[in-house]
Every structure is written in structure tokens, then in C-alpha cells.
């Protein structure tokens, strides 16, 4: 199953997103938060992201969903630090943080491929919240 790593400056934000997603989809989805610094400040940590990717990686690939700014930079650095086979199967996705995470988690839980999960997250970019 495709794994998902939520990268945010805020631990509360990433854990909160994970909490809602797990409530909706159940704990069968492999989703981890890599957020905040080791001394509980706001920030991102490339090595923590790398570690979380390896925790959710089972061969099918991992999608990293960043909030903004240095989350993107830290995630890029984490991917470069990974070794194969995880490295070429870990993608950074450009999507809204929460909507992208839910869509990705949903598709992943259906056993979809890495490309399909990534596409689902990206497709939330223009999504309407109000009908």
C-alpha cells in the first residue's frame, strides 16, 4: 500500500490532519506526520521526514504532502538522502495540504498505485468546497 507522509511546520497541524483522516478511513492507511523540530518549535526536519518515509514504505511507494516553504525544501532533501528502492518511489506532491492528504489516503486505502494516488491528491487543487 502507498504510504503518506504529512510534512508541516506544525506538529499539531500534521497530527490533526492525520487524526481526521484516520477517523474517516480507518487505521488501515499508512500515514505518518513529520512535523515540527525536535525541541517542539515550528519547523521541518529533513532527517525526520526521511525516517517517516522509511516507516511507511513497503515497496509500493510513498507520497509526501508538504504545507509550504521550507517543508518543500526539507522534503526534497529527504528524498535525495533516501536510498533505493525507496528513493525513486517517493514523490513530493503539489496539492492543498489537507484536501490532498485526504484524497491520497482514500486512494491509497483502495490499494491504488503510487501514480494514481499522486494524481488524486493533485486533482484536489481546483476542488470546490461549496457546491
Amino acid at each position: 500500500m502507498v504510504g503518506i507522509v504529512l510534512v508541516s511546520h506544525s506538529k499539531m497541524m500534521a497530527e490533526g490532519a492525520k487524526e481526521i483522516i484516520t477517523q474517516m478511513i480507518g487505521d488501515k492507511v499508512k500515514i505518518e506526520a513529520a512535523a515540527g523540530t525536535s525541541d517542539n518549535r515550528l519547523g521541518t526536519d529533513a532527517f525526520l521526514i526521511e525516517q517517516k518515509v522509511l516507516e511507511v514504505f513497503d515497496g509500493d511507494g510513498v507520497l509526501i504532502i508538504p504545507d509550504l516553504g521550507s517543508a518543500v525544501m526539507s522534503a526534497e532533501m529527504a528524498i535525495e538522502n533516501l536510498e533505493e528502492p525507496a528513493r525513486s518511489k517517493t514523490y513530493l506532491v503539489d496539492s492543498p495540504f489537507f484536501e490532498g492528504a485526504i484524497a491520497a489516503a482514500m486512494e491509497a486505502s483502495f490499494g491504488k498505485s503510487l501514480e494514481e494516488v499522486k494524481k488524486a491528491a493533485e486533482n484536489t487543487r481546483g476542488m470546490n468546497k461549496i457546491a
Partner: peptide, 9 residues
């Protein structure tokens, strides 16, 4: 691993 912002990476 300790800076937190973009200046870390």
C-alpha cells in the same frame, strides 16, 4: 535537524 526553517536545509 535543529534549525527548523528554510535556513536548516
Amino acid at each position: 535537524s535543529t534549525v527548523g526553517g528554510a535556513s536548516g536545509p
